[in-house]
């Protein structure tokens, strides 16, 4: 079940939350601590969603989006981690790594669309008196719709590939009997995030 109706509707919902990253509001609906548990609940694995949400939130607390500095996308990372876990037969590290990779990949796409926006905005420069406000309104709609569609397409195209790798890599990992270590790892994983946050606060 690498591609199901469940994946489609979760992609639609997460893409909606994704608008909050940049194009609308910044109410923090997109934070890992919100998206992780939510995707977990929708996928029927709330505990794992929460664990991923907590870990990514702690790691991303000190990552600040200032000006042109764009970090790997945390929303994509956490939602891919949770979604891939469903196909991992209980292995935690592979979905986590795939989530982080997906976050980097989404960042590349984001950089591309931001460059595209630089070209699109010049449309208003050529506007006449009667059309300038209309064009600005249309640009705002363009921002919302293009971001939503971009994210939905990204999820629908990349997720089947990610889940395929998850299934096969997890099969490979379980052969090497480190599965039990990985189960123990879930208990202590939040400590890494806690250390990162403490370091960030102490430094400040």
């Amino acid at each position: 079940m690498l591609f199901s109706v469940q994946v489609v509707y979760i992609s639609l919902i997460v893409s909606l939350l994704h608008l909050d990253v940049l194009v609308f509001g910044q109410f923090m609906f997109h934070r890992p601590i919100i998206v992780g548990p939510l995707v977990g609940i929708l996928f029927g694995i709330p505990e794992y969603g929460l664990l991923m949400g907590v870990i990514f939130e702690l790691i991303y607390i000190s990552v600040i989006p200032v000006g042109i500095k764009i970090p790997p996308d945390a929303t994509t990372a956490v939602s891919f981690s949770v979604m891939c876990y469903k196909f991992s037969s209980g292995c935690i590290v592979i979905p986590l790594a795939i989530g982080i990779l997906a976050g980097f990949l989404y960042k590349r796409l984001d950089l591309f669309t931001r460059s595209l926006n630089s070209m699109v905005i010049s449309w208003v420069d050529t506007a006449e008196e009667e059309t300038i406000i209309k064009r600005i309104n249309m640009l705002i709609w363009y921002g919302l719709v293009s971001t939503y569609l971009k994210t939905v397409l990204f999820y629908l195209i990349v997720f089947p590939v990610a889940s395929y790798f998850t299934v096969n890599l997890c099969r490979f990992v379980s052969q090497y009997q480190i599965y039990q270590n990985i189960v123990n790892l879930t208990v202590i994983l939040p400590s890494i995030g806690i250390g990162v946050v403490l370091s960030y606060f102490i430094e400040k």
Partner: peptide, 20 residues
């Protein structure tokens, strides 16, 4: 003001949202 960064771009950054 919630749409400030809707068309964030490298050239003029938040200009569209600000005018909006």
């Amino acid at each position: 003001s919630f749409f400030l960064q809707s068309v964030w771009n490298y050239e003029r950054m938040q200009n569209v949202g600000f005018v909006f």
